[in-house]
Amino acid sequence: MILKLKYLISNGRYEEALQECQNAGENLDNLITELAYEMLDVSVYSFICYQLMKNETSDLHVLAATVLIGPLSLLEGAYASSLFHVRRAIELDSADVLIKELLLLLNLVPDKVVEDEEAKKVAGEILHHDPENKAALDFIKICARKC
């Protein structure tokens, strides 16, 4: 199945690839992330963008950001592009703490695409709703040393 999906995505046959994913019944996020690590190819990101055009959701934006932060992070502009997806995911689902945690991560990556002030604000929002949130508390500790 993964070989067929790899073939379809590599050849721009996104509708067929999407159907293949739906037929598989597997977790789409895990499947696409696994493919991105295996292929190390921007076509996987393009496939996610295709899905976003058909049905924009915060989950798909998070998937796009995750692929850009992880397997495709060596591509020029990957972190900046992932920031777009994280911000859009937050707009679509402002209550999801995991998405906000991704924004904190983008303050710590080598390109540091999120400014300290924005990250501190988001960490504060997270802690307001979840005072024990490990990611936000860790960010505050790290920021205290470097910001």
Rank of each mutant, 00 (worst) to 15 (best):
V97L: 13
V114G: 01
S94P: 09
E56T: 06
T57C: 07
L137H: 00
D41Y: 01
E26Q: 13
L72R: 00
D96K: 05
C21K: 09
E34L: 14
D29M: 06
L18M: 14
L35I: 06
L127P: 10
A136V: 00
K146R: 07
C49F: 01
G124Y: 06
L104C: 09
G77S: 12
H128G: 13
S94T: 02
I90W: 05
L102C: 06
L103I: 08
V113M: 12
Q22W: 10
R88A: 08
F84P: 02
L52H: 01
A80D: 11
S73W: 11
Q19K: 14
P131N: 12
L31M: 15
L68W: 09
K146A: 07
E38G: 01
H61V: 02
I140S: 12
T66V: 07
L106R: 01
H61G: 02
L106A: 05
A64T: 06
E115W: 00
D96I: 01
E34A: 15
C147D: 01
Y7A: 10
G12E: 08
N27D: 15
C143P: 00
R145W: 00
L98T: 06
S82D: 03
L68P: 03
K4A: 13
Q19N: 14
L105Q: 14
I2T: 10
D41V: 06
R87Y: 00
V113H: 04
S94V: 04
S43M: 13
A17N: 06
K146L: 11
L28R: 10
A36Y: 02
T57Q: 07
S73L: 09
D116T: 15
D116L: 14
L63C: 10
N133R: 13
D41W: 00
S46E: 15
A95H: 12
E34Q: 14
E20F: 05
L35N: 03
L105H: 04
L74M: 12
E125C: 07
I9S: 02
S46Q: 13
N11P: 02
Y50G: 08
N30Q: 13
L127S: 11
